[in-house]
Design a protein around this nucleic acid. Structure first.
Lengths: 109, 109
DNA sequence: TAAATACATCGTAATATTACGATTAATAAT
DNA sequence: ATTATTAATCGTAATATTACGATGTATTTA
């Protein structure tokens, strides 16, 4: 028990859930906002910006990377992170599709 | 350890994280899609529709309700669930705001 | 080469989530 | 009243997440 039964859902449902899960943490929302705001990629600045330990930030970055939402490239000693444009657009589209299903007229209860 | 430090984030970041977390599970995505599709509210139909135990569906419904994303009203023996329009719209707006921050030109790395 | 810097990874403790059977509570039908 | 139906809740086992100190790794500077 305790393990999500991915096999009973559609490909899309599973993919969307994975990406939303990656965003569904205040630290990772803050990281994404920082990455976008800085435009130029930042790195360990996040550690001072947010109030979390370096290991924790690194772990959050890894999750965002695993979900494909950000990418990182080596920049000397540090690593430069930024939004992965394709995945970002794609997530936006998937969410639009979900929200588009609902018409305000669907009022019941 | 192991507990999210909500106090270091903004109100908005925390709220968005909570709502996204509520959606970030394939079963709950499926439930929301069903609720929207059925327009008329469904209830235990979800148990047969998805392949999960009744207790599990009930638990998922509770989480969606706690996040304020759905509402339920008693309808005889069964309970009628549907989207909570205000929260749904609000989430849509919050997400739009997040996505709007990113301009495609922000390419680095 | 040695020290410094920037991140990643490991190990671990605390906590949260997921799923389900069993039970309970409430309403409806007989 | 009794039984059936529907959904919530309880208890529990398995698993996942969150956070951090300590350590490892790679590059850069002295």
């Amino acid at each position: 028990m305790g393990v999500t039964k991915s096999e009973i859902y559609t490909e899309e449902q599973n993919r969307l859930a994975v990406q939303l899960k990656a965003i569904a943490h205040p630290a990772r929302i803050a990281i994404l906002q920082e990455l976008i705001k800085a435009n130029a990629c930042i790195c360990g600045d996040l550690v001072t910006e947010l109030g979390l330990a370096q290991a924790t930030i690194s772990q959050h970055l890894k999750e965002l990377k695993n979900a494909g939402l950000i990418q990182g490239t080596i920049e000397g000693v540090s690593i430069c992170y930024c939004i992965e444009p394709k995945a970002w657009k794609n997530l936006q589209n998937e969410l639009n599709t979900l929200f588009a299903l609902y018409k305000d007229t669907n009022s019941c209860c």
